[in-house]
């Protein structure tokens, strides 16, 4: 199923990109603007498809983790790079504090990175000024990852709903944030499959702190 859904999108995203790069000829301003909208919408649709496929796989018990050994610090750095353009655009500072004892982890690299990226993306998306910080340290045989922001925060009564599928909260921001409403529920399931936990503490108007606790070793390397 995933192939059938993604192949036509591959083509839409690809050709839009070619046109925007002006590899097929120069664009006028209006064409550029409209193609930019096609690009945004197709990327959003791809994110939705990926998330829906993930959640349905998880719910059907068909998602399996593929553990390998990798540098956690490196993954954190990579994900920061991915959100940096948006953070820079919004003039939000990105900070990273990774303690020295954080070395390698045996886990599903792709999925760990997916969780880190999701939390960083949310933090940047829901912060209008200030900073987003990611930190990592060890605690016994676990790593503790914290993603904190100085954003809009979450109402206490909304926190239980946060990790449920399809619940983007009413953020009070003028525009509903683009997202699938599935990200955090997927993160929670993935982290739980790894034998870890995810939680949040938040103060409305002050910011949020998401805490992920994952075993340094989850599963055998195949």
């Amino acid at each position: 199923m995933s192939h059938e859904l993604r192949t036509p999108l591959n083509s839409i995203i690809g050709f839009t990109g070619i046109l925007l790069q002006e590899l097929a000829g120069p664009l006028n301003e209006e064409q550029r603007k409209q193609l930019g909208m096609v690009q945004n919408s197709s990327r959003h649709l791809l994110a939705l498809i990926n998330d829906v496929l993930d959640i349905s796989k998880i719910e059907a018990g068909q998602l399996t983790l593929s553990p390998s050994s990798f540098e956690l610090r490196h993954s954190i750095e990579k994900m920061i790079q991915l959100v940096s353009p948006l953070a820079e655009k919004k003039r939000i500072k990105m900070r990273m504090t990774v303690s020295e004892e954080v070395t390698d982890i045996t886990s599903d690299q792709r999925r760990i990175e997916q969780v880190i990226l999701n939390l960083l993306n949310n933090a940047v998306k829901f912060t209008e000024e200030g900073h987003v910080e990611i930190s990592c340290r060890t605690e016994d045989d676990h790593y503790i990852l914290l993603v904190s922001d100085t954003g809009i925060g979450i109402r206490p009564e909304d926190i239980p709903k946060l990790f449920q599928p399809f619940h983007q909260l009413d953020s009070g921001l003028a525009r509903k944030q683009e997202g699938t409403g599935l990200g955090l529920s997927i993160c929670k399931k993935l982290i739980e499959m790894m034998g870890g936990t995810i939680g949040v503490e938040s103060q409305l108007g002050r910011g949020s702190v998401f805490t992920v606790r994952v075993p340094r070793q989850s599963g055998e390397v195949s």
């Binding site: 192949t7 591959n10 083509s11 690809g14 050709f15 070619i18 590899l23 097929a24």
Partner: peptide, 15 residues
């Protein structure tokens, strides 16, 4: 085998 993907990659590489 997908004609559009082929065209896409071909176009980019040739450019």
């Amino acid at each position: 085998d997908n004609e559009q993907n082929m065209y896409l990659m071909h176009f980019l590489l040739e450019k």
